[in-house]
Write a protein that binds this DNA or RNA. Structure first.
Lengths: 143, 143
DNA sequence: CAGTATCCGTAGGGATACTG
DNA sequence: CAGTATCCCTACGGATACTG
């Protein structure tokens, strides 16, 4: 049975909408495109800004824009998940790391990401089955 | 230490970009705004289309549009997480439920949502601290 | 009821240039 | 290096109307 009140949903644009129940906002920060990646990477070790940027955009297509990374980090910092350690040296050096709270979140996110990877085979099979069924249907429809 | 390969990230627009490593796509489907809510609701019990629509948009602001719910459900169905049971009666009746695979995903998502709720107090405190520190800084900056 | 098809607005997010 | 400030565009997602 349900764990408790999680089943109570809300909606509206995510962004800054004040009319949304507060926990949904945090959830969206954590599950956001870059939020997910930032948390997972920081679970490994602390990172500097540009270092993190490169780490995230490692594989395929271009990575995060500076703007988005900044924005993501600020949001997560404000929520108390990420710690920002800016040291007044030249050139500037800023290290980002997880807080205890952030680590808890990151572990859950990583678990989900890991699950996704582990189950990719099943997903791929489901997709092919779906696509073939669809094609058969559309074919019948057109003849 | 890291569980394995999850730390390897990718990027590019989520949508249908073929150049993104496949598991990231599934992760984005699962963590998408409506995907999260659909999975959590369906964990409770099966739902009919409109019923699900209403259940999701229960609390605050307006809920999901038909379009978005349809799209979300189709994506999740294609990924093999949701089962669609369309019965040829009049009026049409379609029930959505979780597959075994979907249930695994949904449980992780619900755990994350639950965690978020449980830790809201900490998050709120962090936010106030952040906002005050920021205001103090900006104040000093302007004087 | 359960969708599909269209039109359309907006803000999410990328690229670039500039600052401390 | 680590950001901020701007410009700009597209695709996410809402509203509406129509179909099976």
């Amino acid at each position: 049975m349900a764990v408790s009140t999680v089943g109570a949903a809300s909606a509206t644009r995510a962004g800054q909408d004040p009319a949304m129940c507060p926990y949904r906002l945090v959830l969206e920060h954590v599950t956001s495109r870059w939020g997910v990646l930032v948390l997972i990477e920081l679970l490994e070790r602390p990172y500097r800004f540009s270092e993190l940027r490169r780490a995230i955009g490692r594989v395929s297509g271009r990575g995060v824009s500076e703007k988005m990374l900044t924005q993501t980090l600020q949001t997560l910092e404000r929520d108390g998940l990420v710690h920002r350690d800016a040291r007044p040296v030249i050139p500037p050096r800023v290290d980002y790391s997880l807080t205890d709270l952030g680590r808890e979140a990151a572990e859950q996110v990583r678990a989900l990401a890991q699950w996704t990877q582990d189950r990719m085979a099943d997903v791929e099979r489901a997709r092919h089955a779906y696509d073939e069924a669809r094609q058969a249907r559309d074919g019948a429809h057109n003849r």
